[in-house]
Design a protein around this nucleic acid. Structure first.
Lengths: 355, 355
DNA sequence: CTGAAAGCGCTAACAC
DNA sequence: GTGTTAGCGCTTTCAG
């Protein structure tokens, strides 16, 4: 009866062919250093045993070299990353950089599930790019602990040991609010996603600035408050939803307008939600922008079609630059910080308040 | 002067703390099996040395276990994958499956560059999903060689040793052409992307069926020919472009209509190109669908907004199912084949020919 | 051109 | 609790 067959390896092939493991290794990795006869025997035996070639992990270990893989930590819910056009544009830029340098991209599925939480520790990568997570995200901490070259994107930098790229979200939001105030708006509200990072849904204005979690959402709220404060306004009702979706945006708009029918402008801090909010506002029978101005943030491709006034930033470039920072990282060099330009793109969803 | 400092490892930490490597290992992996005193000493020393924890590759080797990582082979140009909404929808579905199972996703950048061509061999993964590559793609062959659980998507299956999911592209295209013929169209043209896989740009009708490369594009062309043949029509001018972009679609439409102004319908076999072609047709002053019917394939979200008649398939589900097939793969089990439903979605870009 | 042997850094049994 | 000792599967000098 058939003996227990060991999983094929360099050694099992070597022994059957009657050569050393070194020769088998060479047959696969440096064909020119092996005679054709031996090589073909090796390959034949390998095929017979179903041996697919050197094990990547073992290879990695003994070579001790680079993995040519970049780890990408995305928002908690991986699928959502593909739902948000802003994230997709970012990925596209990052992929372009990686592809050019022959780097693979490992998408780390950062579930809050603690079991899988060491996906970061187990990742066989040369470094990381972290996209749009909160400064207090536990995965981010683990990444920092690994002390590999790391680039933070749309993430407040908890340390200056890493490179950083992103827009000045606070300034962008401030400029947006200034435009609205300039147009005559005095009662402005905001809709945001995941301010607390938790699954919270509801009003969120009762948070002090210091209490704002370290996230892009917090920065954007700060920016709005900056502008309002400068104009002597201190009322900013905020409605928060956990997910950045059309439905959540619509839902939040209804909740906010039910609470505060007097608002003349609503700043939605993510474009996807903003587009949903825009539709919801029309559903309420509001004339846009006569009765209500609605604005977004990010300027995703769909924003133009929707006529959405929004804060524009170079999404794809952001990805490309993140890749370039990562690739050009030199050991011991100082950390670099690239602030991307931002500007308010005025479209048909905004205008002076009617009254 | 400072002696050469070895890269920190379990051993370097162990020796300085005066414990065994096993204890250090346990401190990191099974805290409960180590006394608090020892553990904190270990952690302190590790921090001092800048030791980030067990090396993933070595860990992987000795555990001999799973990597919890799925390798995804995409079309040659990775960034393009994020440009095509059909691919993004697929990724979203796949990511949802992966996330649920705590699997990471390694995007393999399959450059034609032969240097990087063993990215497949070097990938530390438990298996592969292959999306939309040609049957004769060399990377695909390498993946098959690794004999890991593999799922093919939108890729003709060169072997039945792997699982497969996709629509019946040939049938979908045939049904589309039947609808057009039914409406009275007799002179139909086609626009396709990368039929040859090469960087070819130009007419492509002079290829026998047998010669059609094994790709979804080939299947779709086959489908059109099936329907035309059944109706006694044998003329199918084809214009090919290497990339699936709006610009390429527009360009191809102009080229095709310059050659064959008599056409009453053009089947563009990818939605992104189709939307570009639609715009180009209008630019030529053609009335849609009076002067010309233009159709697409895939039914990406933007198709509805563009009023594009197209062949619809469940894009996100395709990704989800690919993930499920992969996750439910049992050694030695028979390969499975999931054919997705397809149906023609008639919108405003198609109609009976005017004349 | 081929072989022998020393690790790469870690984990898993077992002992103590 | 903690230490010892084998490997995991491969690459790499260095001889022959």
């Amino acid at each position: 009866m058939p003996r227990h067959v060991a999983r094929p390896s360099l050694a099992t092939v070597a022994v059957r062919v009657g050569v050393s493991t070194a020769t088998v290794s060479n047959s696969f990795n440096r064909p020119e250093k092996v005679s054709d006869t031996v090589r073909s025997k090796v390959l034949a035996e390998a095929a017979r045993q179903g041996y697919a070639g050197p094990d990547p992990a073992a290879r990695q270990l003994s070579r001790g070299g680079r993995t040519d893989t970049l780890g990408l930590l995305l928002t908690e819910e991986l699928p959502l990353a593909f739902t948000d056009p802003a994230a997709v544009a970012f990925l596209q830029g990052l992929a372009a950089s990686c592809q050019g340098a022959g780097q693979n991209l490992l998408l780390i599925s950062a579930t809050s599930n603690s079991d899988a939480s060491d996906a970061v520790r187990a990742a066989v990568v040369d470094g990381f790019v972290v996209y749009a997570v909160r400064a207090d995200d536990p995965h981010l901490q683990r990444i920092l602990d690994r002390r590999l070259p790391t680039v933070l994107v749309d993430t407040p930098a908890p340390t200056d040991a890493v490179d950083w790229v992103g827009p000045d979200d606070r300034a962008g939001a401030r400029e947006l609010a200034e435009v609205l105030i300039e147009q005559g708006h005095r009662r402005i509200g905001a809709i945001t996603a995941g301010l607390r990072g938790a699954r919270y849904s509801g009003p969120a204005e009762h948070r002090s600035s210091a209490d704002l979690p370290a996230s892009i959402h917090g920065s954007r709220i700060q920016g709005l408050r900056d502008a309002l404060g400068a104009a002597g306004l201190d009322d900013l009702p905020i409605e928060e939803r956990p997910e950045n979706t059309h439905a959540a945006g619509a839902d939040a708009l209804h909740a906010l307008m039910d609470r505060r029918p007097d608002l003349t402008a609503v700043c939605v801090l993510m474009d996807v939600m903003a587009i949903g909010a825009l539709a919801a506002a029309r559903d309420r029978g509001l004339d846009i922008p006569g009765d209500l101005t609605v604005t977004g943030y990010d300027d995703i491709p769909q924003a133009a079609a929707a006529g959405l006034t929004t804060v524009s930033q170079p999404l794809t470039d952001k990805g490309r630059i993140a890749g370039e920072l990562y690739l050009s990282r030199r050991a011991g060099g100082p950390s670099r910080r690239r602030v991307l330009p931002t500007h308010v793109k005025v479209r048909s969803s905004s205008g002076p308040p009617r009254c």
